[in-house]
């Protein structure tokens, strides 16, 4: 089984931000992502998804180290997302090579 080691970056944030954050990610060089609608509870309250504006999204990206730091630096520097709930975490993943 041939695999490549990559970084999976997961961003959990408010659904309202989808358009703007995807736009930023694409500008930074991301060319693929997966978005999942999510609910849960955290510092900014319960996101029950009972209401359209009350939904979170979980964005998953598989990137290399360089791009991951570029995105991380951008998100920490920009003040744009200060007032939104956002959680970002990284994990190392092994991506299967397809023939």
């Amino acid at each position: 089984m041939e695999t490549i080691t990559k970084i999976m970056m997961t961003i959990i944030t408010e659904q309202n931000l989808e358009r703007s954050i995807i736009h930023d990610l694409e500008d930074l060089g991301v060319d693929g992502y997966t978005i999942i609608e999510a609910r849960g509870k955290g510092d900014s309250g319960i996101k029950s998804a009972t209401w359209m504006n009350d939904t979170n999204i979980q964005i998953e990206l598989i990137v290399d180290d360089a791009l991951a730091s570029k995105i991380y630096n951008y998100i920490s520097d920009t003040k744009k997302y200060d007032n939104y709930s956002m959680m970002v975490y990284l994990s190392e993943v092994k991506v299967l090579k397809r023939h």
Partner: peptide, 26 residues
């Protein structure tokens, strides 16, 4: 409003507490 305005205001005025206005209107 509880649909169009909450979404627009969340983007335009991120400092506003969305819970306040949604609780009042909805």
């Amino acid at each position: 409003s509880y649909i169009a305005v909450p979404a627009a205001v969340r983007i335009a005025l991120p400092e506003a507490n969305p819970g306040l206005s949604l609780t009042a209107s909805l």
